[in-house]
């Protein structure tokens, strides 16, 4: 950069302020989780893994964590085929009512989560599945599906529309064309969307609050319940767990898709 010194100072100053304000809460919570004291504070009192140990002793936490994994897995498993096929169909094929279908699929995004939560609670109650765990995963899939569709649509848009004709020209019947050419070509979007769906489901709080009870409570709801009583450093430890899972997702994204592709959002 050739700008004057003051310009460079201003730009770098802005960059550092942004970086610090973005990462500071995370760094504080990580620090606080290693405290040896009784309350959350920063800087921590001493250093210990005490609260991680306490967390691990807590059966309610372990059960909630397991349920959250289960719910997120269901959400991801449902959204992969549904979102992928919906994105390919609405972007690529001249299907009837294409615009209406597109709007309909993105509709969950325009509805406040409170409304979604209440309506799904009523609906699940009506069909007598409220109180079970798997419908929570399906519900999270429904409210977050637009992210999956956007992610795959971006991949579909990036590929040459002729590659399917090219595959047929090479002798591949339609199903083979889909399995060996279309699907692998949109795989970056599918993987990105799948990881996104998993993380979103793992973090989802409001809709889960409506759909779970004490037997099916998921981790975000469990955290909410515990901060209503007393705030102890084990919450900081849970937060670190969340940060770790987010980092794993980013790592997987880099290994499977390549972060450069994701950041360029091809």
């Amino acid at each position: 950069m050739r700008g004057s010194l003051s310009k460079r100072i201003a730009i770098w100053g802005l960059v550092w302020v942004s970086l610090i304000t973005l990462s500071l809460p995370t760094l504080i919570v990580i620090g606080a989780s290693f405290t040896a004291g009784e309350i959350i504070r920063f800087p921590p009192e001493g250093f210990s893994l005490r609260w991680y140990g306490e967390l691990w002793q807590l059966d309610s936490f372990k059960a909630a964590l397991a349920r959250t994994f289960y719910v997120s897995a269901i959400c991801t498993a449902v959204s992969l085929p549904v979102g992928t096929l919906a994105a390919i169909a609405t972007v690529r094929y001249r299907i009837r009512f294409r615009n209406a279908v597109q709007v309909y699929l993105l509709l969950p995004f325009t509805i406040p989560l409170v409304v979604s939560g209440i309506s799904m609670m009523i609906f699940f109650g009506e069909i007598r599945i409220l109180g079970q765990l798997w419908p929570v995963g399906v519900a999270l899939c429904i409210i977050n599906l637009p992210f999956m569709i956007w992610s795959v649509s971006a991949s579909v848009n990036a590929i040459d529309p002729e590659i399917e004709n090219a595959a047929m020209n090479c002798g591949a019947p339609p199903l083979q064309t889909f399995l060996t050419v279309t699907l692998p070509a949109v795989m970056p979007g599918v993987i990105t969307g799948g990881l996104l769906m998993f993380i979103l489901a793992f973090n989802e709080f409001l809709v889960s609050l409506f759909l779970t009870d004490s037997r099916t409570v998921t981790l975000p709801v469990q955290i909410y319940n515990s901060i209503r009583s007393v705030i102890t450093p084990d919450l900081a430890a849970v937060s670190v767990l969340y940060i770790a899972i987010a980092l794993i997702a980013v790592f997987l994204l880099d290994r499977l898709v390549g972060l450069d592709i994701f950041l360029r959002s091809k």
Partner: peptide, 13 residues
């Protein structure tokens, strides 16, 4: 029939 497409349509993966 073999065909060479306008934008080539190679399989990117």
């Amino acid at each position: 029939i073999g065909m060479v497409f306008q934008k080539l349509a190679l399989f990117p993966h």
